[in-house]
């Protein structure tokens, strides 16, 4: 359990840095960790917060589901054909690295303000890393798998489902970890710009009002959620890799 202990040490280190930063910068723009945690408890207990939280979680879950399904499907359809992969990969990579925030006026014009916009915004952030990792995973598979599927006369569906997917699963899962984080930030950004509800909306409001308390609390909640989820996914990732080797 040294990894758990190390993670704990990193968390303590981060809290320490935060406290030091507070002492260095002062009340102007920061709040100390302890005060933020106490305020976070108060915010969670406060009326109406849970409905914002539920809204964000719903949007995030939907966006993640879309990102995973479309990303994996895209990765497979490009990864199972050499020419399609060569044609598609640079396109995927360049779309991945565009500042997607510039697209928000267009997303807004298409989907309007509200749930569909946030989901779309989250999904377009998450699809590309998942697709790129899936494509890479399929390309790195040993060629013997392709020969096996030909020898067994599997159809494309059968070979994708029974052979390629299990073999590529650990790599795909790594892409999924990154996709998870990016979908979360995409959903939150969507809420900041294109919504009247949700955590991102609360954050944008707090930014507008210079409400440092609220900014700190919300950031802490988002970061804790992201770190917890990332650790859980990493643990599953490790298990998948050990199980497969």
């Amino acid at each position: 359990m040294t990894s758990a202990r190390n993670s704990l040490l990193v968390i303590v280190g981060l809290l320490l840095l935060w406290q030091l930063a507070y002492w260095a910068i002062g009340d102007l723009a920061l709040r100390p960790p302890l005060e933020t945690v106490v305020k976070a408890g108060a915010l969670i207990a406060s009326e109406g917060f849970l409905s914002h939280l539920a809204e964000t979680l719903r949007a995030f879950a939907l966006a993640l589901a879309i990102a995973v399904v479309v990303g994996v499907a895209l990765g497979f359809s490009l990864g199972m054909n050499r020419l399609a992969g060569e044609v598609g990969e640079p396109l995927l990579v360049s779309f991945y690295s565009l500042p997607k925030i510039t697209l928000y006026p267009i997303v807004l014009l298409i989907f309007g303000i509200g749930m569909p916009s946030k989901v779309a915004f989250g999904a377009i952030h998450g699809i590309m890393p998942i697709a790129i990792f899936t494509l890479g995973a399929l390309r790195n598979l040993p060629p013997v798998l392709g020969r096996t599927s030909r020898a067994l006369r599997l159809t494309r569906w059968q070979s994708a489902w029974a052979l390629l997917f299990p073999a590529a699963r650990p790599e795909i899962f790594t892409g999924l970890r990154l996709g998870f984080s990016l979908t979360l930030i995409g959903t939150l950004l969507g809420e900041m710009f294109a919504s009247q509800r949700g955590i991102g909306f609360l954050l944008m409001q707090a930014i507008g009002l210079h409400d440092t308390d609220l900014i700190m609390v919300l950031t802490l909640l988002i970061v804790s959620f992201a770190i917890t989820a990332s650790m859980a996914l990493l643990a599953i990732d490790k298990q998948l890799r050990h199980g497969s080797s």
Binding site: L9, R177, L178, S181, L189, M192, T219, I222, A226, S230
Partner: peptide, 29 residues
């Protein structure tokens, strides 16, 4: 080695942090 390993989940989670939330703080600083 240990530090690099311990920080790896934090690096992945980092991209979920809405960095823009720190913008007002940046302006103050």
């Amino acid at each position: 080695r240990g530090l690099a390993d311990a920080m790896s989940p934090f690096f992945t989670a980092y991209y979920a942090v809405p960095v823009y939330a720190f913008y007002p703080m940046m302006i103050a600083i």
